[in-house]
């Protein structure tokens, strides 16, 4: 029971940045405890990813390979990871609070008879008993709780950006092949099809222009689009985002939602239009370098966290702003 294990994730076949963050956080915890840090790559063909994760200073990389692990099927992944954990009995198990993490971690925690804490911001070791102290935001981010749980492995999912990503080192990790005992019968949920939609990645934008429930008509998002167009001449990559009510109304797809249950971003500039600034929204954009708020209500929360505020109806302000930007361009 000597290892810290972390789950490697990929995005479009490449190593995901959140994994590098886990490696940083995990390596430090392992060092504190004087144990090794290792990672597990799951799939039907794990070599490329295992190779790429091998140069970040981890002791071992487990290649958990099986035909049933093709793509991502939560039950199969949970089953395989359960098998691995029983073989190597890790002391700590770190998983990103990602789509995969949210699916796998609770199932796995149950099966390993341990207790999971999700969406952690920070982790440290209690020197008294060697347990993980898990820091997580609660009440949407209105309070920060630090808690401890019994059970082994000590298991958590970690929020994006909680740690700086790890840099490459010259040494290579040992690669260990593992073939889990899995059979078809554990899969009770059958995937019929996956429908790809145009998905925006708001974290790639320099400027995000976000609309909220204050935008009264779906067509009014065209004003935001015109503003984005005008801004893109001087502000780099500009994208449109939104708060949750806009998704609830099906005016935008959920990949554009910013916040606790949407994307967590930190663009150079964030423009919030008709968004009141609920805590669950703020946690998604508060790290933006500049925050500009446009709202008719001078008392709204968004102004409290903004650098620049305009108390005005967007219907009057945005067209005027677009006009001015275009004139002076």
């Amino acid at each position: 029971m000597s290892e810290l294990l972390l789950l490697v994730e990929s995005k479009e076949g490449l190593l995901d940045k959140t994994t590098l963050e886990l490696i940083r956080g995990g390596s430090e915890l392992a060092k504190d405890l004087g144990i090794d840090a290792a990672a597990v790559v799951v799939g039907n063909e794990t070599s490329p990813l295992a190779e790429s994760v091998a140069s970040y200073g981890l002791k071992k990389i487990y290649k958990l390979e099986h035909p049933l692990l093709k793509g991502f099927q939560p039950e199969a992944w949970a089953g395989a990871l359960e098998w691995l954990a029983r073989q190597i009995t890790p002391r700590i198990f770190l998983i990103s609070h990602s789509f995969v993490g949210k699916e796998v971690a609770p199932r796995l925690a149950y099966r390993l008879d341990t207790e999971l804490t999700t969406d952690c911001l920070n982790l440290r070791i209690d020197p008294q008993d060697g347990l993980l102290i898990r820091t997580k935001p609660i009440y949407g981010g209105n309070a920060i709780a630090a808690l401890k749980c019994a059970g082994l492995p000590q298991m958590v999912t970690v929020r994006k950006n909680a740690f700086e990503p790890m840099e490459k080192v010259t040494t290579k990790s040992d690669l260990v092949d593992m073939v889990p005992a899995l059979d078809e019968s554990i899969i009770k949920v059958k995937s019929l099809k996956t429908v790809k939609e145009d998905v925006v990645e708001l974290d790639k934008a320099n400027m995000v222009i976000a609309g909220g429930r204050g935008i009264v008509a779906k067509e009014d998002f065209e004003m935001l689009a015109a503003l984005a167009q005008a801004m893109s001449k001087s502000q780099g990559k500009v994208m449109i985002g939104c708060s949750r009510p806009v998704v609830d109304k099906s005016w935008m797809s959920s990949d554009r939602q910013i916040g606790l249950t949407g994307s967590i971003i930190a663009p150079d500039t964030y423009i919030a239009i008709g968004i009141s600034g609920a805590i669950q929204h703020l946690v998604g954009m508060i790290r933006s370098k500049k925050i500009i708020a446009i709202n008719t209500d001078p008392g709204c929360n968004m102004f409290k966290v903004a650098d620049v505020g305009v108390v005005e109806d967007y219907k009057a302000l945005i067209p005027a702003l677009v006009k001015k930007l275009e004139e002076s361009a």
Binding site: G141, I144, A145, A146, V308, G309
Partner: peptide, 18 residues
Amino acid sequence: QLVELSPPPDMRRACLFI
């Protein structure tokens, strides 16, 4: 088992109203 509970970091910025 709560070890500690704390308020969130202060998010406020001084807003310049136009």
